[in-house]
């Protein structure tokens, strides 16, 4: 089963709607609560990154036999230094974003913490693809 979402890069008030919708789908399917929570947190962080840093993009969420695989793609500026971006507390978010409570530098670390697997493909000036999976 697949769900596809367009991620708006301008409207912060709807940031997180893809994650909220997919959480509802998983709950309706009877997915265990702890797995739902892991997916929700990892997916929300990736979604917010797509909004803040990617300027919007798209998301494909797939429920497979033994895992859930979620892919976020954007055509944003890319990540210049992934190891730096993975450090807790490091963020390139601007002051406006920080005033909203984002930009704590916990996005990618949280994805790594809650997803069972995560991969990042990025190219400066072209965009970023983040794939995260959670085992069922």
């Amino acid at each position: 089963m697949h769900k596809y979402y367009k991620i708006d890069g301008k409207d912060f008030s709807i940031a997180g709607e893809a994650s909220s919708d997919f959480k509802t789908v998983l709950k309706k399917l009877g997915t265990p609560a702890e797995i739902v929570r892991k997916v929700a947190i990892a997916m929300y962080e990736a979604e917010i990154n797509t909004v803040i840093h990617g300027g919007g993009g798209e998301c494909d969420a797939a429920i497979e036999k033994d895992k859930i695989v979620i892919t976020f793609r954007d055509q944003g500026p890319g990540i210049a230094d992934i190891s730096l971006a993975m450090q807790e507390g490091y963020s390139t978010a601007n002051d406006k974003i920080r005033e909203l409570g984002f930009g704590a530098g916990m996005g990618l670390p949280n994805i790594q913490k809650y997803a069972d697997d995560m991969s990042i493909e990025t190219e400066v000036g072209k965009g970023t693809t983040v794939v995260l999976s959670i085992n069922l």
Partner: peptide
């Protein structure tokens, strides 16, 4: 800080905050 809360708060916690935006 929303990502901090997201990563550290536990299910069934009371979450106390001064943040009031829609997120």
């Amino acid at each position: 800080l929303l990502s901090w809360v997201m990563g550290r708060a536990k299910p069934q916690d009371v979450w106390i905050t001064v943040m009031s935006n829609v997120n």
